[in-house]
Simulated scan of single mutants.
Amino acid sequence: MNKDQDLSFDKKVTTIRQLEAIIGEPGKLAKNKVIPAIDRHCRTFISKSPFLVMSTSDEKGRCDASPRGDFPGFVHVLNEKTLIIPERPGNKRVDSMRNLLINPGIGLLFFIPGLGETLRVNGKAQLIQDEEILSQLAFKGKEPLLAIAVEVEECFIHCAKAFRRSGLWDPDSWPAGQELPSAAKMIIEHAKIEDHTTEQMKQRLEDGYLNRLY
Rank of each mutant, 00 (worst) to 15 (best):
F156V: 00
T14L: 13
G90T: 15
R43W: 04
I16H: 00
N91R: 09
E131N: 12
I102M: 15
C42N: 00
R43L: 10
Y214E: 15
D95A: 15
T118L: 06
D58E: 01
M201Y: 00
G167F: 01
E132G: 03
L213Y: 09
E80H: 10
L19M: 11
G107P: 11
Q136H: 14
P113E: 02
R165F: 07
K31D: 10
I16S: 07
I102D: 08
E132I: 13
D70F: 13
L210D: 11
S166W: 08
G167T: 01
M1C: 07
S135F: 05
I133N: 04
E153T: 12
S49M: 13
M201W: 01
T15G: 06
M54E: 03
Q203F: 12
D39I: 14
R17E: 15
E59R: 12
N103D: 05
A162K: 03
G141S: 11
P104T: 06
L78G: 00
T15R: 02
Q18K: 09
Y209C: 11
E151H: 09
K161P: 02
V152C: 09
E59V: 09
I187K: 01
F51P: 00
S55C: 12
C159F: 11
L108V: 04
L83C: 08
G114D: 04
K48C: 02
A191V: 10
K3G: 01
E151Q: 13
D95M: 12
P89R: 12
D10I: 03
Q18Y: 07
G90E: 13
T44V: 00
G69E: 04
D130F: 06
C155S: 06
K33I: 12
Q200R: 12
R62V: 03
V34H: 09
L146C: 14
G116L: 05
L137H: 00
M97A: 10
K11M: 05
G177S: 05
N79L: 09
I102L: 15
S47T: 01
A160Y: 08
T198V: 15
Y209Q: 12
I187W: 01
A176S: 03
F71I: 06
D170T: 04
T198H: 08
M201G: 12
I85W: 11
G107M: 15
Q5F: 13
K92H: 14
S47W: 08
D70W: 08
L213E: 11
I106P: 07
E206W: 10
P171T: 06
